[in-house]
Amino acid sequence: MTMKKQTAGAVTVAAAMVCVAASAGWRLGLIETWIAIVLNVVAFPFFLVALGLWWNAAEKEEGDTPFIGY
């Protein structure tokens, strides 16, 4: 299940926009507190993970068996 770099970038941008928009809306008093919180809580994890994936999207096609034993 590899993710394309573009997809990761798009998710990052979308999540960041949701976070910023929700925060800004809350600051300006446009959005109620709880809605802003829910939006942030949902979008922030995706932002973090997708950001990392976008920085260095895996080029590998398949997964590897985990490292086991010394």
């Binding site: 299940m1 590899t2 809580v41 949902v42 922030f44 994890p45 995706f46 973090l48 993970v49 950001l51 990392g52 994936l53 920085w55 260095n56 895996a58 080029e59 590998k60 398949e62 997964g63 590897d64 068996t65 985990p66």
Partner: peptide, 27 residues
């Protein structure tokens, strides 16, 4: 450093859960 590392999902993992748990932890 970790976020710049090459990343994939182990072949033995339960893929959806493997990723979802990270997102859930942050959430």
């Amino acid at each position: 450093k970790f976020s710049f590392k090459e990343t994939w999902i182990p072949a033995t993992a339960s893929q959806t859960l493997f990723v979802a748990v990270v997102i859930i932890a942050i959430g």
